[in-house]
Simulated scan of single mutants.
Amino acid sequence: MKTNKNILVVMPVEDEHKKTLEKHAKGSHFVYSSYDKVTPEMIKEANIIIGNVAPFYLKEAKNLEWLQLNSAGADPYVKKGVLPENVILTNATGAYGPGVAEHMLAVLFSLQKKLHLYRDNQNQCQWHDEGAVMSLRGGTLLIVGLGDIGLYFARLMKNFGYHIIGIKRRLGQVPQDVDELHTMDDLDKLLPEADVVFSVLPDSKATRNIYNKQRFKEMKNTAILLNAGRGSAVNTEDLCEALIQGEIYGAGLDVTDPEPLQTQHKLWNIENVIITPHISGDFHHPATLYRIVDIAAGNLQRYMAGDGLMNVVDMETGYKS
């Protein structure tokens, strides 16, 4: 049983969230701050940090034993030298399904019904018919990165009659609402079948530039690419060319490479692209913060009891172990 830990919480928690956390670590000292207001002194004193802090601060975290991220992505924290040795790293996988999936569903429907074009017309005070649209129903959805977010998206899309194919690192039982399960080895075989490709990949050596010139040529010219993982999975210049040449129909991007996307980048002005500034997985959805706090509180209870933690990150892959 562990007691008297210094616990730094770097998230926008309310009183009810604080009570949830503190009841699992009685006798510990809690300090509450935010990403932009946390100080090096707070980090140096912390045994446990709950929430994302700027990675460069962590070199001075001499007392740190465990870092619980408020993000599912852990790529900035698994780089060599960021965390002191023997620090346990856990992420918030399982918190972002509703927020990210619902956001990307809205983006998809906007592209299929050309609502983005009508909004552009409205801004120009133009009464103009943009022509034929896509049906919301039916088709094949390929989810690349079938974790919590991908499964939540599958559940939403199943209501619209989609045939759903999932890709994971390792095969296992086919989840509910998924029709087929494959590994990345089958990506080139599956891309030509997909009407919608939903990518939820983290940043790693294995995932960078997966969506490139060759793979855009493999996709249907009516296909829509949705990216809510990391921008590095997409070769941005190749995507621009594929969209301009009509090799794919459109793209919905909550992440880009580079990020932020430069003001003058040509991707901004390509017609069938919807870009949002990496906000689908933030705290905007009301369920997200509650889910993160529940994950952190559960792990806090386990840690104080000396039990193994959930969502431990593999430092080699950046994925949950």
Rank of each mutant, 00 (worst) to 15 (best):
N269C: 11
M304S: 12
T276H: 09
V293I: 15
L309S: 15
G306Y: 09
A287G: 05
I292M: 00
A296V: 00
I274Y: 08
Q301V: 08
H284C: 09
H285P: 01
D282R: 04
G298K: 03
D294V: 05
Y303M: 07
I274F: 07
S280F: 08
Q301R: 11
G308Y: 14
I279T: 12
D307Q: 14
I279K: 09
N299W: 07
T288L: 05
R302L: 14
G308S: 13
R291P: 01
L289A: 02
E271L: 11
L289W: 02
H265K: 10
R302E: 11
A305E: 15
L267F: 11
V293K: 02
H278V: 03
H278P: 03
T276K: 08
W268M: 06
L309F: 15
V273D: 09
I270G: 09
S280M: 08
V293L: 01
T276D: 09
D307R: 12
P286M: 03
D294T: 10
R302N: 12
H278T: 00
F283M: 10
I279Y: 08
W268H: 14
V273C: 05
S280V: 08
D282L: 10
P277K: 06
H278N: 06
Y290M: 07
H284S: 13
M304P: 10
G298L: 06
V273I: 09
R291H: 07
A296S: 09
G281N: 02
T288H: 03
I292K: 02
D307Y: 15
S280Q: 01
A297L: 00
Q301C: 09
Q301I: 07
I270Q: 06
G308Q: 15
G306A: 14
E271G: 08
W268Q: 11
T288C: 03
T288Y: 00
T288I: 02
A297V: 02
H278I: 02
I292E: 00
A305N: 13
W268R: 11
N311I: 13
A297R: 03
H278S: 07
P277W: 04
H285G: 01
Q301P: 01
L289V: 01
I292Q: 01
M310H: 15
Y290H: 14
A305T: 05
M310F: 14
N269D: 15
E271P: 06
D307T: 13
N311R: 13
G306F: 05
I292P: 01
Y290S: 11
L267W: 07
L309I: 13
H265A: 11
I274C: 08
N269H: 12
V273Q: 05
Y290Q: 10
Y303K: 11
I270P: 06
I292C: 00
R291W: 01
F283C: 04
N311Y: 14
I275T: 05
N272A: 06
P286Y: 04
R302M: 10
N269V: 10
Y290C: 07
